[in-house]
Amino acid sequence: MWRGCRRLLRAPLPPPPRPARGYAPPAERKRFYKRVGISRGEGGFEINLDQRKLRTPQAKLFAVPSEALAVAVAAEWDAQQDTIQLYAMHLTTLCNTALDNPTQRDKTQLIQAAVKFLETDTICYRVEEPATLVELQRNQWDPMIEWAEKRYNVTIGSSTSITGPTIPVSTRETFSSHLASYNMWALQGIEYVINQLKSFILSMGLIDRHITVEEAVLLSRLEEEYQIQRWGKVEWAHDFDLHELRARTAAGVLFTHLCLESSTVKHKLLQDSGPGR
């Protein structure tokens, strides 16, 4: 027994367990470049950080189809101060998602995922009490549903039950065939907007330029706004969420519109190089 104790004494003591730390923010990369530029390559418009070309997380060359999108992405990289805050670079993130396609979904799956959101659309779920909120939801959300029903010639409706409204098969088919007319990049953007706003109808209103981003975000957060009016606002929770949701939604909408407009941008480039200018 003594021998065992001596061995224990001679053996180096294991390091004391470190106290479990709470949340520690992840380290951010330093800004390693000075100038951000855009160049035109074979795959589209590329971003240059000094002499290096920007790459996606899967090490693919970062190339986007539209010049305006490349300009906006370059502005995001230019806006970084000492460290690169990737979590606040929504356009870059969206382009990375579209280029890498980390979930490995094809067009049909993307459309299915988008249309599936219609079954659990925020603006189709209504409350039964309090009466003021019921009225607010009716006044604010009903015009959007009416617009969508008229614009796409479908039936949607709303419900107060927990299972939500029953969406007819024809409605789903109409939306599926409408979404099929968009390209892969635009679809990634649309799905992103839907996931942010938690509403298919509001997203389509944005893509069709029926409402502005501020209006869509307000409609999406209608109940929260109602509670804020009643109970007061906390800056670091409510305002924080509001600005983040607005930034993300605006990024998704802008991304979708810019990806749909590559032909317009080409036309402008031709004009610029023409003899008239």
């Binding site: 906006a72 805050q85 606040a88 929504h90 356009l91 502005t212 981003v213 501020e214 800056e235 670091w236 305002d239 924080f240 600005h243 983040e244 607005r246 930034a247 605006a250 990024a251 909408v253 802008l254 519109h257």
Partner: peptide, 15 residues
């Protein structure tokens, strides 16, 4: 939309 993106990102980062 771009204006909304820039302004909201700035306010979000400030908060």
């Amino acid at each position: 939309t771009y204006l909304c993106l820039l302004r909201s990102s700035r306010l979000h980062l400030a908060l």
